[in-house]
Write a protein that binds this DNA or RNA. Sequence first.
DNA 1: TATAAGCTTAAAGTTAACTTTAATGTCAAT
DNA 2: ATTGACATTAAAGTTAACTTTAAGCTTATA
Lengths: 138, 138
Amino acid sequence: MKIGELAKLSGVAAHTIRFYETKGLLPKASRNVNGYRHYNNESVQRLATIQCAKRLGFSLEDILTVLAHSEPAKGLDHDKVLQQLDVRLLEVKQLIKALLVQQNEITLFKQQLQTTWQQGKCMQADALFDSNSAMITE
Amino acid sequence: MKIGELAKLSGVAAHTIRFYETKGLLPKASRNVNGYRHYNNESVQRLATIQCAKRLGFSLEDILTVLAHSEPAKGLDHDKVLQQLDVRLLEVKQLIKALLVQQNEITLFKQQLQTTWQQGKCMQADALFDSNSAMITE
DNA sequence: TATAAGCTTAAAGTTAACTTTAATGTCAAT
DNA sequence: ATTGACATTAAAGTTAACTTTAAGCTTATA
């Protein structure tokens, strides 16, 4: 099939497919007489793989690393895959933690602001931010 | 004070301070005879404000927006600030949700992989990812 | 006095993951 | 035969928030 068809089947834009090829995420496509790239079902599979990994939060480079450590014949390098999954899992957990902190800080800040403003005080930005800063870091 | 001193006091690198000036986050600094930028305590405050807002996850552009809607004399635009805080709060909540989903997906995927591999099966990458994909989307 | 540290500018580089552009070639259908 | 859709390439553009570079002044210290 041609790149446009693959694009439709996979949901990945044609130019993105070419981009993936330059990045080594897809093997260099074989060409037919007119120079057009030619794909088969394996290509669809490969793109599905990439999509899936991306959904788990992996960067293209992560995906490339796993691919690089896996020989076509033997399949994936198990240790590498599990290791990457663990790294990503840790990353995700830390992100969640940081975001929960942010959520609290913003909520608290909002309350402070509203209270202050309801009292008719029109503090300058700096003072407000500073009081919030002090509140949080204490 | 000169830019280097401000950098030390605020914990923001000198070139970053100049960068903020070009972006309008800091007012154009007055210069002394030799052309060097000259700062005072207000500058320290302003940088603290920016740092604080950044910690809450606001982009420089967000910060600029609030600043733009606030006149120096009147202080901050209350509605604008509260609105921005609400937008960011929603953003944070959605991010947390998405990350929790990712956390689950990765954990499930790991278990699937380990089970499969322990059974001595050496599936190819595609099949694995696909089974995972199916598992998740069902 | 010489050297090092600090200041100035504008412009380009960085990272990620594409997207857009430009200029051109091929194919399918009417 | 012509129109429109699809293909090719390399290179530049996008976004965010800086960082680095280059090339050249100024100031402080030994």
